[in-house]
């Protein structure tokens, strides 16, 4: 969770390899919202999506979830393992711990739980945003973004 405590809550289902999610991330950064990100890795379409979701969760175990999240969306062209290690070093995290954590059962379960909750909520595409219990599939419309500015 990030953002103002009193700002409207946006729950986003996204995938770190999805370009529309990266676009959405930038748009949401420009409005006043409280954000929750849930993993919805569609591996048949994005082979690295689950690996990246686990990596972000592993960074989160060292207190740098959103920093890692931002770093992935800032550059989706560099998502191989050495690129992940580079990001970990830049953020000053413990690499050995990151490597163990991102392959751990607990992290895999966390990502799977997010994915299942998305399926349950009827998510069929990324990004899908939930605002006030209402689903908005795809990159948020100008209208939706405007509603956060009010």
């Amino acid at each position: 969770m990030r953002g103002d405590r009193d700002a409207p809550l946006v729950v986003e289902y996204g995938d770190y390899e999805c370009p529309y999610c990266a676009k959405t991330d930038g748009l949401l950064a420009g409005v006043r919202v409280r954000r929750v990100f849930r993993h919805f890795p569609v591996v048949s379409k994005h082979p690295r999506a689950r690996v990246l979701a686990c990596a972000a969760e592993a960074a989160g175990l060292q207190g740098s979830y959103w920093e890692f999240h931002d770093s992935l969306y800032a550059d989706q062209g560099r998502i191989d393992d050495p690129h992940l290690w580079e990001r970990v070093r830049e953020l000053g995290l413990d690499l050995d711990r990151f490597e163990a954590d991102r392959r751990s059962e607990a992290v895999a379960e966390r990502v799977e739980r997010d994915f299942r909750s998305g399926l349950r909520a009827g998510v069929v595409t990324t990004p899908t945003l939930f605002v006030d219990g209402q689903a908005h599939a795809g990159v948020p419309s100008e209208e939706l973004l405007q509603s956060f500015l009010r």
Partner: peptide, 13 residues
């Protein structure tokens, strides 16, 4: 484009 996402998501389950 829409079918793409549909079958991709079903593939996951």
């Amino acid at each position: 484009p829409v079918c793409t996402d549909q079958l991709n998501v079903y593939q996951e389950v």
